[in-house]
Computed example of a mutant assay.
Amino acid sequence: MTSNAMITEVVLPGVVEPDGLQLHRRAMPVPARGQALVQVEATGISFAEQQMRHDRYPGQPKFPFVPGYDLVGTVRSVGPGADGSLVGTRVAAVTKTGGWATHALVDIDALTPVPAELDPAAAETVVVNGVTAWQMLRSARLRAGQTILVHGANGGVGTVLVQLGRHLGLRVIGTAAARHHTALRELGVEPLDYRDPDLAARVRELSPNGVDAVFDPVGGPGVRTSYGLLAPGGTLVVYGNAAAVNSGQSVAWVFVKLLSRLYTWNALPNGHRAGFYNFWAGHLTRRAAFRRRLRTDLGIVLDLLRQGVIVPQIAARYPLTEVSTALVFAETRSRAGKVVLEP
């Protein structure tokens, strides 16, 4: 690698429209001890980056910064003292920011090997989305034959979640716009229109005794309906706060109200459980354990992808230089799955 090598990265300068994203060139960074330089082959556009564009994602960095929640790529160099055999290895990592670039510095203990036969874009669809879906299903303590309701079943997390649910022998009801219903049926989902004013009644028609778990990425007022659809002993898992984006209220305040409601429900003597899934729980206080668990769970999900248990749902592929167009397309949610950038 020559000393004058350059990288390209996407910079979010502030609260801007998608065409306000900036492409910057800078010198190739050199990995420090404990780091690897990864040449990015695929990175994704998730709802997190869409929230960050509005300055509505909890804990996001100060502007300007490089977005990019996760990535798949090949190790090109490692820092002093690291195992040189890592060079040339395809890996995946959850970065939270920094993935929208041709190259990224990543902590070595955050890297998970990716099976060589997997397409990088396919693998990208299950990095943060697959781990999220896998960990939430495990936390819900479900058994084969039970029924779950997945809101946003056409989304990046939703499309992986419904496939893992079917793999585990669960009956899956999924909400999405009507245009996604054919694709969801092909995944074994019983689809319902999320805009149906009688949605709760439609769920009750399919599952008269309620559902054993609800997975809700929206939060907001609708979470009360989700909780009311639980069967005895059922579990509500909220894993997003999308309702806060256009609420006009402080994201932190909306989140506090949501957590307070979940806490209150857990105090009720009805046997239901309600909780908020936090992907990053423990990453500051138990970093080593957090990263071990992440590598283990991501390895499991990547292997299920390799086996064909999970079929990658790629909404579209764009080169990094067309990131503004890609972001506009992602925000339309017109196609199920994940929009992938290929630097």
Rank of each mutant, 00 (worst) to 15 (best):
A32E: 10
V131H: 11
K62H: 15
A330Q: 08
V328T: 15
G20R: 08
S250K: 06
L184D: 01
D196F: 13
R76K: 14
D107T: 10
T225W: 06
H180F: 06
L327G: 01
A326D: 00
G152R: 03
R224F: 04
F215W: 01
T325E: 13
T112V: 15
A242H: 02
Q51D: 05
I108L: 15
G233L: 00
L149T: 06
M6K: 15
P115Y: 00
Y227F: 13
G130A: 03
Y57F: 15
L21Q: 02
A267V: 01
N270L: 02
G234N: 00
Q146H: 04
T97H: 10
A281R: 15
A242F: 06
L12V: 05
K96E: 10
T321D: 13
L170Y: 05
G88M: 06
L230S: 04
Y57H: 12
R202V: 03
W100D: 05
L105H: 12
V251M: 10
T102G: 15
L12H: 11
A288F: 04
G59Q: 04
P64I: 02
V87P: 11
K338M: 00
V131S: 03
I300D: 08
A121D: 06
A315V: 08
F63W: 08
R25K: 14
I173A: 02
E41D: 02
N246Y: 15
N129F: 05
T89M: 14
R141Y: 09
P217Y: 02
V106T: 05
G165I: 09
P208L: 03
P67H: 08
D196E: 03
G59R: 06
P221I: 05
